[in-house]
């Protein structure tokens, strides 16, 4: 069974004038299909305004579909009685680290979710400890969030979601406001949760290099899923990505350019190691070629 199942999902933002007449209709999600299996690491890519954040908010029942269906963990999100259970099973981490931490002490913030869903006091403390340890923030439990770095704040936010023991975590551009160190920290924490705790991850981002390690990638533009496939698959379609206002990691782009220049390279080279070994292969398959110089020979 899929943990997330979106079929023909449509969301329209409707602007009304004072008399309640429709002034403007903005289609943010346009018949979107997407599904996620438990334990997967999924990325949703798209430029700002492509509808990816609107989609994220549906997964958490913060927005209601205009039409179409969305099932999260076997629950129909449009049913009123499912709203809280859906929010509990699909936790959400937002972009701005400051605007999602509620309490003035780290551990109390992590306890906020469990408090809301009525977890007994003793168990709250156990969950807080477990979640803070799972993102490596246990030593900071007594700190004020104001004194933490951006990456640390995002890890606290992730712990706050983990404490509700969700099946999956939706991260809506969690690294957009962080520096390179913070980005690395957050991504490492998310990957670890996915591998060690088996939490399903839905990472929404516009940084291409962050999706390299995911199981499956969806690319959104104008509210539609315009591409989907494995990272390698997606990255081999450089021109298409550019059309959707995205760019590819430097290495992939370089490999693509080299291929266009006539080198016999495969599509969608993702890492440096790959490119080096491919170039070595080219050299070795053609050892007598006068163009290939090798200083070991």
């Amino acid at each position: 069974m899929n943990i997330i199942e979106a079929k023909n999902l449509v969301h329209e933002y409707i602007r009304e004038d004072e008399e309640g007449n429709v002034e403007e209709r903005l289609v943010a999600l346009d018949h979107m299909d997407l599904h996620v299996k438990p334990g997967q690491f999924i990325s949703v890519l798209g430029h700002n305004g492509s509808g990816k954040s609107t989609f994220a908010k549906h997964l958490n029942a913060l927005l209601e579909p205009t039409s179409g269906s969305l099932w999260v963990n076997g629950m129909d999100v449009t049913k009123e009685e499912n709203i809280l259970p859906v929010r509990q099973s699909a936790g959400m981490v937002f972009q701005n680290p400051d605007n999602q931490i509620i309490a003035s002490v780290v551990q109390e913030d992590v306890g906020f979710g469990p408090e809301n869903i009525g977890v007994p006091t003793e168990e709250i403390w156990q969950r807080v400890e477990k979640s803070l340890k799972s993102v490596g923030m246990w030593e900071y439990r007594e700190h004020s969030p104001n004194k933490l770095s951006g990456g640390q704040k995002q890890r606290v936010a992730i712990a706050g979601v983990m404490a509700m023991e969700p099946k999956c975590i939706v991260l809506d551009e969690p690294t957009a406001m962080l520096d390179p160190d913070g980005r690395k920290e957050v991504l490492a924490a998310v990957h670890q949760l996915n591998k060690e705790k088996g939490v399903t991850i839905i990472l929404i981002t516009h940084y291409m290099d962050e999706v390299v390690d995911s199981d499956y990638v969806y690319v959104m533009d104008q509210g539609k899923v315009v591409m989907d496939g494995t990272p390698r698959d997606i990255f081999s379609r450089v021109e298409e990505l550019k059309e959707h206002r995205l760019d590819v990691p430097q290495i992939t782009l370089l490999a693509y350019e080299l291929k266009n220049a006539g080198l016999d390279l495969p599509d969608g080279v993702l890492t440096r190691e790959e490119l080096v070994s491919e170039l070595c292969r080219l050299r070795d398959s053609n050892p007598n070629g006068s163009e290939v110089k090798d200083n070991k020979e």
């Binding site: 370089l254 440096r272 170039l279 090798d294």
Partner: peptide, 18 residues
């Protein structure tokens, strides 16, 4: 970090490319 390209060139050198 330096740009990825810098690392690639280093790697290529290590792999024996001139």
């Amino acid at each position: 970090a330096a740009p990825q390209v810098t690392y690639l060139m280093q790697d290529l050198k290590t792999a024996g490319f001139e």
